[in-house]
Nucleic acid binder design. Structure first.
Length: 670
RNA sequence: GCCGGGAUAGCUCAGUCGGCAGAGCGAUUCACUCGUAAUGAAUAGGUCCGGGGUUCGAUUCCCCGUCCCGGCUCCA
């Protein structure tokens, strides 16, 4: 009898040849929880995910993949996607399947069906899935040759296409495709069969795997929504019907996730914007356009004041530029050619056509070229809060997170090539300070986007230099950056910085881009030490990104309860009865003198109702004053979100305290 | 732009199997003058998104458009 050796951590053991991953893990006493699959490292050093029931090779190192890890959940979700596809096949004969990978927090599967799915369909599919889970179908892995795979999936055109794509070397990043193969190597395809207890094959799918041992190991799942999605994510391809679902290692974890979704709905900036009278987006205005109501405008003003002050302090110079310009400017800049479909149409005036600006760059270039520039002026950092208008496709507009008119804290830094790294480092550190000030903590993701495969301008040397400069700057800033291949702008590579909000969602906010297009197109130059003309590089950066988007992210992150320094109304003074209106007025005046935004609630109504109003308005501090306070010149303080009070606090003390908190311009807990 | 779902009072929503539309909150007025999350009463408020069609009659059914929502694609 042949035997093999397997390892885990420091332990090793001998097993009969043909032993599976789960047998190895058991023999090695390596299991410490709910295990969904194994990670197997073969003697040649290749590490991959492994079905528990799959044979392990001699010399393998095995480890558990647990259900409650992200890696484990992805496997669980992928298996759930298969069950869903089987249910769809049962209920919708003739459905064609495309792909069904796990995604963040869930999974989806795309189908080509006669008619789109309805919410009722989702319920039926869910019910059928529950039946399939009870059947405890095994996931059985099988390796098949290309021809056999093509024969088996002859009536599944999307699967056949995947097979041919892999075969001709097109790398498909989808999890459902087999691993990319090296050129010239014969690809092996794997098929997973869902096998009933009686051995009948219920369903099969072309799939890379791995999967759970059987369907009964799916503890909790839910289908969330149906939506259209292009095959292979390309607009020129047919539109399929996608069903999104989620699956978790326990009912409790599923429930927590569903509650998170509900919480996100409650925090929606469109809902809170209306309730707290921050913003207004009436139909009369047009899609993607917004009005900042007084409450929102106060918050926005704090953002603008902060960025203006900081920008000047960091050596930027301000400019103001118009909202429209003659079409020729946009022709020179290349925007009409490369960006034209995102620009509003022209306005004909006095035999010239004018366009709303989708970007501020050309204006800042005109500021640069207003006279001859010297190398002594570089880096020249031109900054503006510039409002731009982009004719975004109708389906993408979303509240103020994706608007058609928005304001960028925009700057263009004109510098020499050797100054790029320092300048970009400066931008990243600026962004870090900005996130800290506005309560979003540290950047969560720093990504360097490289040259796009499609259209791009500039020489290889320029791209290489700029990409390296960005990576060096990211590294010098101390961030573990990732590289987004081919995601750069057509005119140069960029760094995008993301931040997480209070409920863990990630948002792309800051962008820092190197631009070699515009300096060339406008043929801009500075006079160097040598007396010759030289072309500067341009670094384009927006730290908030869009004021509107950043504002909305803050609204959702704070759940509308802004830190005191940002809050539209910082303090509300509530007299317990009209007799104390005079003292309440004095309290309000004392605060107002210190620049505190205070409102006196002297109108009719009970104290309870006024407290409730103050709380639902999310005012940071509510001061209640009555006879004892008036006599002792104190206040009773109730902070937002608590039902506890600090009583008998001297008025002067509170004024100093809140003024200091506001002056610090920091979130309370940060 | 594409797929699907929507639009009724300022907000959240009910309703009409086709017969001139309702609640709660909010607003206004009056009464109440109150010690920490809703005092009571009254009043006002609607082209039931817009246009066309079917019908004796359309907010309701059909078509077109606008806008919104969830995705795809795109992006700050």
């Amino acid at each position: 009898m042949q035997s093999i050796t397997v390892h885990h951590a420091d332990a090793s053991t001998e097993l009969e040849a043909g032993a599976t991953a789960i047998q190895a893990l058991k023999a090695l006493e390596a299991i410490r929880g709910s295990v969904v699959a194994a990670r197997v490292t073969t003697p040649d050093g290749t590490s991959s995910q492994w079905d528990l029931d799959r044979e392990v090779p001699d010399g393998a190192r095995v480890a558990c993949i647990y259900a409650e890890t992200e890696e484990g959940r992805a496997i669980l979700r992928h298996s759930t996607a298969h069950v869903m596809a089987q249910a769809v096949t049962d209920l919708f004969p003739g459905a064609k399947w495309a792909i069904g990978p796990p995604v963040e927090d869930g999974f989806y599967y795309d189908f080509d069906v006669e008619r789109p799915f309805t919410p009722d369909d989702l319920e039926r599919i869910e019910a059928r899935m529950t039946e399939l889970l009870r059947e405890k179908q095994r996931f059985v892995r099988e390796e098949v040759a290309k021809d056999d795979a093509l024969t088996e999936f002859a009536d599944q055109p999307y699967k056949a296409e995947i097979i041919s794509l892999v075969d001709d070397g097109t790398i498909l990043s989808q999890v459902d495709a087999p691993d990319p193969v090296a050129a010239g190597q014969d690809p092996t395809f794997t098929v997973y069969r869902n096998v009933r207890q009686d051995g009948e094959v219920a369903w099969s799918d072309l799939c890379r795997g791995p999967h759970l041992p059987d369907t009964a190991r799916i503890p909790a799942f839910k289908l969330l929504r149906a939506a259209g999605a292009y095959w292979r994510g390309r607009e020129d391809q047919p539109m399929l019907q996608r069903i999104y679902g989620t699956a978790w290692e326990s009912k409790k974890a599923l429930k927590a996730h569903l509650e998170m979704i509900e919480e996100a709905k409650r925090r929606d900036h469109r809902k809170l914007g209306r309730e707290l009278e921050l913003t207004h987006q009436p139909d009369e205005l047009g899609p993607g356009l917004a009005i900042f109501l007084p409450n929102g405008a106060i918050v926005r003003k704090q953002m603008e004041d902060w960025i203006r002050d900081e920008t000047l302090a960091r050596g930027y110079v301000p400019v103001y530029t118009p909202h429209i310009a003659k079409e020729d400017l946009w022709r020179i800049s290349g925007h009409l050619e490369n960006y034209g479909e995102l620009m509003y149409p022209g306005m004909e005036v006095e035999n010239a056509s004018y366009r709303l600006k989708p970007m501020n760059c050309p204006f800042h270039i005109l500021a640069f070229t207003s006279r001859t520039r010297s190398y002594r002026e570089l880096p020249l950092r031109i900054a503006e809060l510039g409002t731009v208008y982009r004719y975004e496709r109708s389906g993408v507009v979303n509240g103020m997170l994706r608007a058609r008119g928005f304001t960028q804290d925009d700057s263009h830094i004109f510098c020499r090539a050797d100054q790029i790294v320092d300048e970009v480092v400066g931008c990243i550190e600026f962004a870090r300070d900005l996130y800290a000030a506005f309560g979003l903590g540290e950047p969560s993701r720093v990504a360097v986007s490289t040259r796009p495969e499609a259209k791009s301008i500039g020489s290889d040397e320029q791209w290489e230099y700029a990409e390296k400069a960005l990576m060096e700057a990211a590294a010098r800033s101390g961030y573990d950056y990732v590289i987004d291949e081919g995601e750069g702008a057509f005119y140069g590579p960029k760094i995008d910085i993301h931040a997480r909000d209070a409920i863990g969602r990630e948002w792309q906010l800051t962008t820092i881009q190197v631009d070699f297009n515009l300096p060339q197109r406008f043929d801009i130059s500075y006079v160097g030490e040598d007396g010759e003309k030289h072309q500067p590089f341009m670094v384009h950066r927006a730290l908030f990104g869009s004021i509107e988007r950043f504002f909305s992210v803050m609204v959702e992150s704070f759940n509308g309860a802004f830190p005191t320094w940002l809050a539209p109304e910082q303090v509300r003074v509530v007299p317990v009865a009209a007799d104390f209106d005079a003292y309440a007025g004095e309290v309000a005046a004392a605060l107002r003198t210190q620049g505190v935004r205070v409102h006196l609630d002297a109108a009719d109504g009970t104290l309870g109702a006024k407290i409730r109003d103050a709380q639902t308005s999310k005012v940071p501090y509510t001061l209640v004053v009555g006879s004892s306070e008036a006599e002792a010149r104190t206040v009773a303080i109730r902070a937002y979100g608590t039902d506890q009070q600090r009583k008998d606090v001297p008025l002067d003390g509170f004024v100093a305290e809140v003024a200091a908190e506001i002056a610090a311009k920091r979130p309370k807990d940060g």
